[in-house]
Amino acid sequence: MSKEHEQGMSVIVKTVTRLTVGMIFLYGVYIVLHGHISPGGGFAGGVIIALSFIHLMLAYGKDVALRKLSKKTASFFESTGALLFLAIGLLGFSGGYFFLNFIPKGEAFRLFSAGTIPLCNIAIGLKVGAGLFAIFVALAMLKLEKGEKK
């Protein structure tokens, strides 16, 4: 076994995690993208995406999870999501007022419908997913350091 598989939980947990973590991530993406059709939306989907990375971190230890999504990348995605959401709001001024739904509505019950709402959902999903994962990493690392000092 390589060195990275020494920390973290037992082999059973690692195997189950390897099989499920991708599906959890995809389910989060699905919830974000279908926020305007089915229940869910940017916030709930973003939390599920963050939970998939937290799942990876709990099972495999912090090195593997941070290689998938490092702290810097998480900060980048979080800021990008916030700015994207603001930009969509500001682009509404092209047609008149703040947060105008300036894209054509399209046909109901289709994935590409509802104008700016799916774009806002994607922006919020990026922001929430990266932000909550960053909070978790920061708190977990604080605890690790505290343990090392004692």
Binding site: G35, H36, I37, S38, P39, G41, G42, A82, F85, L86, G89, F98, F99, N101, K105, G106, A108, F109, S113, A114, G115, T116, I117, C120, N121, I124, K127, V128, G131
Partner: peptide, 26 residues
Amino acid sequence: TGAVNLVSSVILDFRAYDTLGEATVL
């Protein structure tokens, strides 16, 4: 709004300003 899910049509279209505030808080 063209959104079938009325909750998302309220939070991201009619009341999008509130959602911007919430996003800023987070």
